[in-house]
Design a protein around this nucleic acid. Sequence first.
DNA 1: CTGCCCATGTAAATGGTTACATGATTGA
DNA 2: TCAATCATGTAACCATTTACATGGGCAG
Lengths: 181, 181
Amino acid sequence: MSLKHAILGFLDIEPLSGYDLKKKFGSTAQFYWSATHSQIYRTLEQITEEGLATKKIIIQEDSPNKKIYHLTDKGKEELREWLLTPQDLPLVRHKTLVQIAFAYLLEDEDINALLDDYGEKVRKKLEHYRGRNQKSMLDKARSKKERYLWQQTLSHGIKTCVSEMEWIQSTKKGLKALNKE
Amino acid sequence: MSLKHAILGFLDIEPLSGYDLKKKFGSTAQFYWSATHSQIYRTLEQITEEGLATKKIIIQEDSPNKKIYHLTDKGKEELREWLLTPQDLPLVRHKTLVQIAFAYLLEDEDINALLDDYGEKVRKKLEHYRGRNQKSMLDKARSKKERYLWQQTLSHGIKTCVSEMEWIQSTKKGLKALNKE
DNA sequence: CTGCCCATGTAAATGGTTACATGATTGA
DNA sequence: TCAATCATGTAACCATTTACATGGGCAG
């Protein structure tokens, strides 16, 4: 399970609460993994049971109490081992592409509407990736190497979106050309 | 659920058995969806219960009996409606990218090994996408438009792999450069 | 005689989403 | 006063993977 290891990776950088992690998965981790808060809290419990992290309760007066999770040596070892293990390619599950594959049943205008909607969503994601939040995150890196690796995951996200936008454009163009023949 | 609709899409083209569908999801549907046989058989049951398809048992003497599923009018309607509904962006879950993000803990040679392994897997996938199987599939299209749409899903798969290969190369190159500073 | 293709399914476990549930503080 | 942010969790459900299970035909 990679959610577990992504969490261990974040905890290696600094101790965090479930709530903090939720924010990471809603911003920086967006390039490579997504998770909801219910999943994160369950996984943190599991990680603690396995002795990979310990939790410390911080009592706060003006806001709810926090549970801060600290990575243990065993957790760090588990992370290191996983990092060295080659992974299978991610399985493709692309709803919009399923639609395009069977869009033979639709009118051209409907296909264009689908592609436009999809394009708009990709454009928004790209905007988010290029926002200053992402760049400021890079300044928290512990070394040049870490900074570089983070930079590359960011580029990966951007590159993927750009490639997607190009595909949308070329698909729309080709569809138009089909009818002019 | 998109597996359901991908199956309906295939059944719209021709009646198929669970086994046939399994092969589709192992070849052409690879660009946009993946599924195992246990998932397919269960989904076919469900589709039949909902009245979206009917099954006909074909008794064969030299090989096991088949159950061929035929799309009903209701099934076709369900498919058409879903095809018109804009979908959310696929959630990113990329194990190798998680590893790269936290690879600060690894030696450069280990990072390179990860990237090489990943690159080799992407290269094999690309080879598969470019194989003649995929091209021959295009000839079964019912119209120019269908052929074009299939062509585009194929290009999407290829474009994604190529973009991935470029990213791997640039990541390796940058890592090397970091140490020469 | 070994292994692959045909062809179907079930069961258990894991992973992931959505809905339910609470409640104080702060800024517009 | 409305919405957002802080902060946690549980429960039910749905989707997916992996393992278990069977058995004939055919080619090398």
